[in-house]
Design a protein around this nucleic acid. Structure first.
Length: 273
DNA sequence: TCCTATGTTGTATG
DNA sequence: ACATACAACATAGG
Protein backbone atom coordinates (compact mmCIF):
# COMPACT_ATOMS: atom_id res chain seq x y z
CA UNK A 1 0.00 0.00 0.00
CA UNK A 2 2.85 2.40 0.51
CA UNK A 3 3.24 5.81 -1.12
CA UNK A 4 5.08 8.85 0.25
CA UNK A 5 3.31 9.18 3.60
CA UNK A 6 2.79 5.46 4.20
CA UNK A 7 6.50 4.88 3.60
CA UNK A 8 7.44 7.50 6.19
CA UNK A 9 4.96 5.98 8.62
CA UNK A 10 6.53 2.53 8.20
CA UNK A 11 10.05 3.97 8.49
CA UNK A 12 9.16 5.36 11.90
CA UNK A 13 7.92 1.98 13.06
CA UNK A 14 11.58 1.00 13.48
CA UNK A 15 12.37 4.11 15.56
CA UNK A 16 12.43 2.12 18.84
CA UNK A 17 15.44 0.27 17.42
CA UNK A 18 17.52 3.41 16.73
CA UNK A 19 20.55 3.75 18.98
CA UNK A 20 20.39 0.05 19.77
CA UNK A 21 22.61 -2.87 18.78
CA UNK A 22 21.69 -5.50 16.17
CA UNK A 23 22.60 -8.93 17.52
CA UNK A 24 21.54 -11.07 14.64
CA UNK A 25 20.16 -10.78 11.11
CA UNK A 26 17.67 -13.27 9.69
CA UNK A 27 16.91 -13.37 5.98
CA UNK A 28 16.04 -15.64 3.07
CA UNK A 29 18.98 -14.96 0.71
CA UNK A 30 17.17 -16.25 -2.37
CA UNK A 31 14.07 -14.12 -1.93
CA UNK A 32 13.43 -11.84 -4.90
CA UNK A 33 13.51 -8.97 -2.41
CA UNK A 34 17.34 -9.19 -2.29
CA UNK A 35 17.95 -9.18 -6.06
CA UNK A 36 21.30 -7.52 -6.72
CA UNK A 37 22.25 -7.20 -3.04
CA UNK A 38 25.20 -8.99 -1.42
CA UNK A 39 23.30 -10.67 1.40
CA UNK A 40 26.40 -12.28 2.91
CA UNK A 41 28.03 -8.88 3.38
CA UNK A 42 24.76 -7.43 4.60
CA UNK A 43 24.56 -10.02 7.36
CA UNK A 44 28.25 -9.70 8.24
CA UNK A 45 28.15 -5.89 8.42
CA UNK A 46 24.91 -5.52 10.34
CA UNK A 47 25.55 -8.23 12.91
CA UNK A 48 26.80 -6.47 16.02
CA UNK A 49 26.34 -3.01 14.46
CA UNK A 50 24.55 -0.08 16.08
CA UNK A 51 21.48 1.16 14.21
CA UNK A 52 22.07 4.92 14.10
CA UNK A 53 19.38 6.66 12.08
CA UNK A 54 16.94 6.46 9.19
CA UNK A 55 15.46 8.70 6.54
CA UNK A 56 12.94 8.48 3.73
CA UNK A 57 12.95 10.01 0.26
CA UNK A 58 9.90 9.37 -1.85
CA UNK A 59 9.19 5.66 -1.55
CA UNK A 60 12.79 4.84 -0.61
CA UNK A 61 14.08 4.36 2.93
CA UNK A 62 17.61 4.37 4.25
CA UNK A 63 18.79 2.83 7.52
CA UNK A 64 22.34 3.60 8.62
CA UNK A 65 24.30 1.37 10.99
CA UNK A 66 27.72 1.79 12.63
CA UNK A 67 29.79 -1.41 12.59
CA UNK A 68 30.83 -2.95 15.89
CA UNK A 69 34.52 -2.19 15.27
CA UNK A 70 35.76 0.64 17.53
CA UNK A 71 36.54 3.88 15.72
CA UNK A 72 35.01 2.72 12.46
CA UNK A 73 34.43 5.53 9.96
CA UNK A 74 32.66 3.25 7.50
CA UNK A 75 28.95 2.69 7.74
CA UNK A 76 26.49 0.01 6.67
CA UNK A 77 23.81 1.48 4.37
CA UNK A 78 20.58 -0.48 4.18
CA UNK A 79 18.09 0.68 1.55
CA UNK A 80 14.51 -0.57 1.73
CA UNK A 81 11.65 -0.25 -0.75
CA UNK A 82 8.24 -1.58 0.24
CA UNK A 83 6.94 -2.36 -3.24
CA UNK A 84 3.21 -2.98 -3.28
CA UNK A 85 2.75 -4.95 -0.05
CA UNK A 86 5.81 -4.29 2.12
CA UNK A 87 5.52 -3.26 5.77
CA UNK A 88 7.92 -2.55 8.63
CA UNK A 89 6.94 -3.45 12.17
CA UNK A 90 8.33 -4.30 15.58
CA UNK A 91 7.97 -7.66 17.30
CA UNK A 92 9.31 -9.15 20.56
CA UNK A 93 12.95 -10.36 20.55
CA UNK A 94 12.01 -14.05 20.53
CA UNK A 95 9.42 -13.65 17.78
CA UNK A 96 9.41 -16.48 15.19
CA UNK A 97 9.42 -15.04 11.63
CA UNK A 98 6.62 -16.27 9.43
CA UNK A 99 6.60 -16.99 5.72
CA UNK A 100 6.63 -13.42 4.44
CA UNK A 101 8.99 -11.92 7.03
CA UNK A 102 12.01 -11.80 4.74
CA UNK A 103 14.36 -9.58 6.75
CA UNK A 104 14.52 -9.48 10.55
CA UNK A 105 17.01 -7.48 12.64
CA UNK A 106 17.17 -9.01 16.10
CA UNK A 107 17.96 -6.61 18.94
CA UNK A 108 18.18 -7.44 22.65
CA UNK A 109 14.85 -5.70 23.29
CA UNK A 110 12.88 -6.30 20.04
CA UNK A 111 12.85 -7.58 16.48
CA UNK A 112 12.68 -5.21 13.52
CA UNK A 113 10.70 -6.95 10.78
CA UNK A 114 10.41 -6.28 7.04
CA UNK A 115 7.53 -8.29 5.63
CA UNK A 116 6.44 -8.37 1.99
CA UNK A 117 4.11 -11.11 0.66
CA UNK A 118 4.30 -10.15 -3.01
CA UNK A 119 8.06 -9.52 -3.02
CA UNK A 120 7.82 -6.43 -5.21
CA UNK A 121 9.87 -4.61 -2.57
CA UNK A 122 13.63 -4.35 -2.59
CA UNK A 123 16.61 -4.43 -0.25
CA UNK A 124 19.81 -2.62 -1.20
CA UNK A 125 23.05 -2.74 0.72
CA UNK A 126 26.39 -0.92 0.64
CA UNK A 127 29.35 -0.28 2.94
CA UNK A 128 31.52 2.83 2.95
CA UNK A 129 32.25 6.18 4.58
CA UNK A 130 29.56 8.06 2.65
CA UNK A 131 26.05 7.29 1.42
CA UNK A 132 26.03 5.17 -1.76
CA UNK A 133 25.03 6.45 -5.21
CA UNK A 134 21.71 4.64 -5.13
CA UNK A 135 20.79 6.97 -2.28
CA UNK A 136 22.48 10.26 -3.18
CA UNK A 137 21.28 10.17 -6.80
CA UNK A 138 17.60 9.99 -5.93
CA UNK A 139 15.50 12.82 -7.42
CA UNK A 140 14.74 15.85 -5.26
CA UNK A 141 11.91 15.70 -2.76
CA UNK A 142 8.65 17.26 -3.96
CA UNK A 143 8.57 19.48 -0.86
CA UNK A 144 12.14 20.69 -1.35
CA UNK A 145 13.24 23.93 -3.03
CA UNK A 146 14.67 21.89 -5.89
CA UNK A 147 11.21 20.98 -7.12
CA UNK A 148 10.11 24.11 -8.96
CA UNK A 149 7.36 25.21 -11.36
CA UNK A 150 9.85 25.43 -14.29
CA UNK A 151 11.14 21.93 -13.49
CA UNK A 152 7.57 20.63 -13.55
CA UNK A 153 6.75 22.50 -16.78
CA UNK A 154 9.87 21.14 -18.47
CA UNK A 155 9.09 17.57 -17.47
CA UNK A 156 5.53 17.82 -18.80
CA UNK A 157 6.74 19.38 -22.06
CA UNK A 158 9.02 16.40 -22.69
CA UNK A 159 6.12 13.95 -22.39
CA UNK A 160 3.59 15.79 -24.51
CA UNK A 161 1.17 12.98 -25.35
CA UNK A 162 1.32 10.82 -22.22
CA UNK A 163 -1.75 11.07 -19.96
CA UNK A 164 -1.07 13.15 -16.86
CA UNK A 165 -2.02 10.22 -14.66
CA UNK A 166 0.84 8.16 -16.11
CA UNK A 167 3.29 11.06 -15.87
CA UNK A 168 2.57 11.73 -12.19
CA UNK A 169 3.54 8.13 -11.42
CA UNK A 170 7.08 8.63 -12.81
CA UNK A 171 9.35 8.44 -9.79
CA UNK A 172 12.27 10.16 -11.51
CA UNK A 173 10.34 13.45 -11.20
CA UNK A 174 7.60 12.74 -8.66
CA UNK A 175 9.21 10.57 -5.98
CA UNK A 176 6.65 9.19 -3.58
CA UNK A 177 3.55 9.74 -5.70
CA UNK A 178 1.58 6.54 -6.26
CA UNK A 179 -1.82 5.59 -7.56
CA UNK A 180 -4.04 7.21 -4.96
CA UNK A 181 -1.93 10.38 -4.64
CA UNK A 182 -1.94 10.92 -8.41
CA UNK A 183 -5.73 10.67 -8.46
CA UNK A 184 -6.02 12.96 -5.44
CA UNK A 185 -3.77 15.59 -7.06
CA UNK A 186 -5.64 15.58 -10.38
CA UNK A 187 -8.99 15.70 -8.62
CA UNK A 188 -7.93 18.74 -6.56
CA UNK A 189 -6.47 20.39 -9.65
CA UNK A 190 -9.67 19.67 -11.64
CA UNK A 191 -7.74 18.08 -14.50
CA UNK A 192 -8.85 14.88 -16.27
CA UNK A 193 -6.36 12.03 -15.71
CA UNK A 194 -6.33 11.33 -19.46
CA UNK A 195 -5.31 14.94 -20.25
CA UNK A 196 -2.05 14.97 -22.30
CA UNK A 197 0.83 16.26 -20.17
CA UNK A 198 1.99 18.70 -22.81
CA UNK A 199 -1.38 20.40 -23.17
CA UNK A 200 -1.52 22.45 -19.96
CA UNK A 201 -1.21 26.24 -20.10
CA UNK A 202 1.10 28.04 -17.66
CA UNK A 203 -1.68 28.77 -15.19
CA UNK A 204 -2.71 25.11 -14.98
CA UNK A 205 0.90 23.99 -14.56
CA UNK A 206 1.17 26.34 -11.62
CA UNK A 207 -2.04 25.03 -10.08
CA UNK A 208 -0.86 21.46 -10.59
CA UNK A 209 2.41 22.32 -8.87
CA UNK A 210 0.56 23.79 -5.90
CA UNK A 211 -1.70 20.76 -5.54
CA UNK A 212 1.20 18.29 -5.82
CA UNK A 213 2.83 20.00 -2.86
CA UNK A 214 -0.43 20.29 -0.92
CA UNK A 215 -1.25 16.58 -1.28
CA UNK A 216 2.29 15.63 -0.20
CA UNK A 217 2.08 17.91 2.86
CA UNK A 218 -1.39 16.79 3.85
CA UNK A 219 -0.64 13.11 3.40
CA UNK A 220 2.49 13.34 5.55
CA UNK A 221 0.59 15.27 8.22
CA UNK A 222 -2.40 12.92 8.36
CA UNK A 223 -1.25 9.45 7.26
CA UNK A 224 2.48 9.82 7.86
CA UNK A 225 2.04 10.92 11.45
CA UNK A 226 -0.05 8.05 12.83
CA UNK A 227 -1.91 6.39 9.92
CA UNK A 228 -5.01 8.53 10.56
CA UNK A 229 -7.85 8.18 8.06
CA UNK A 230 -7.96 11.09 5.61
CA UNK A 231 -11.12 13.20 6.08
CA UNK A 232 -14.21 12.86 3.88
CA UNK A 233 -13.25 16.11 2.12
CA UNK A 234 -10.53 14.15 0.26
CA UNK A 235 -11.16 11.92 -2.75
CA UNK A 236 -9.30 9.16 -0.91
CA UNK A 237 -12.10 7.70 1.26
CA UNK A 238 -14.56 7.71 -1.66
CA UNK A 239 -12.50 6.24 -4.45
CA UNK A 240 -13.34 2.59 -3.77
CA UNK A 241 -16.83 2.99 -2.35
CA UNK A 242 -19.41 1.39 -4.58
CA UNK A 243 -21.50 4.20 -5.96
CA UNK A 244 -18.93 6.61 -4.52
CA UNK A 245 -19.56 10.30 -5.08
CA UNK A 246 -17.31 13.33 -5.43
CA UNK A 247 -17.07 15.17 -2.09
CA UNK A 248 -17.10 18.54 -3.88
CA UNK A 249 -19.79 18.08 -6.53
CA UNK A 250 -21.80 15.13 -5.26
CA UNK A 251 -21.61 13.62 -8.73
CA UNK A 252 -20.87 9.93 -9.19
CA UNK A 253 -17.19 9.06 -9.43
CA UNK A 254 -15.88 7.31 -12.52
CA UNK A 255 -13.24 4.57 -12.90
CA UNK A 256 -11.06 3.38 -15.78
CA UNK A 257 -7.58 2.04 -16.44
CA UNK A 258 -5.29 4.94 -17.35
CA UNK A 259 -1.53 4.67 -17.51
CA UNK A 260 -1.92 0.99 -16.73
CA UNK A 261 -3.50 1.67 -13.34
CA UNK A 262 -7.06 1.81 -12.04
CA UNK A 263 -7.92 5.48 -11.96
CA UNK A 264 -10.76 7.32 -10.21
CA UNK A 265 -11.98 10.79 -11.11
CA UNK A 266 -14.94 13.09 -10.83
CA UNK A 267 -16.29 13.74 -14.33
CA UNK A 268 -18.24 16.70 -12.99
CA UNK A 269 -15.06 18.67 -12.24
CA UNK A 270 -12.35 16.92 -14.29
CA UNK A 271 -13.02 17.44 -18.01
CA UNK A 272 -10.68 17.07 -20.96
CA UNK A 273 -9.73 20.47 -22.38
C1' DT B 1 -12.38 -19.59 -11.80
C1' DC B 2 -11.44 -14.94 -12.58
C1' DC B 3 -10.53 -10.45 -11.21
C1' DT B 4 -8.45 -7.12 -8.32
C1' DA B 5 -4.50 -4.93 -5.61
C1' DT B 6 -1.40 2.36 -2.66
C1' DG B 7 4.91 -0.61 -7.61
C1' DT B 8 8.82 -1.10 -10.62
C1' DT B 9 11.25 -2.85 -14.62
C1' DG B 10 12.38 -4.99 -18.93
C1' DT B 11 11.07 -5.11 -23.56
C1' DA B 12 8.79 -3.87 -27.82
C1' DT B 13 7.26 -0.37 -30.84
C1' DG B 14 6.93 4.08 -32.73
C1' DA C 1 18.12 8.44 -28.23
C1' DC C 2 13.60 9.29 -26.56
C1' DA C 3 8.63 8.64 -25.65
C1' DT C 4 5.05 5.48 -24.89
C1' DA C 5 2.61 1.14 -23.73
C1' DC C 6 2.32 -3.08 -21.49
C1' DA C 7 3.52 -7.75 -19.73
C1' DA C 8 5.89 -9.72 -15.94
C1' DC C 9 7.09 -10.21 -11.27
C1' DA C 10 4.28 -13.26 -6.60
C1' DT C 11 0.62 -13.64 -3.39
C1' DA C 12 -3.85 -13.06 -1.21
C1' DG C 13 -8.55 -11.97 -1.10
C1' DG C 14 -13.18 -10.98 -2.97
Amino acid sequence: MPELAEVDYFRKQWNPGLGRRIDQVLLHPKARLFRGADTARLVAALTGALLERSEARGKQMLFVARPAKVGATSRAWLGLHLGMTGELRVEPPDFPPSRHDHLVLLQPERSLVFTDPRLFGRVRFSEGPTAPDWWTELPPDLLSDAFTVPALADFLRRRPRAPLKAVLLMQERFPGIGNWMADEILWRTAIHPQQPAGSLDAARVKTLYREIRAVCRNALRVIGADWSDPPATWLFPHRWEKGGTCPRTGAKLQHATIGGRTTCWSPARQKLI
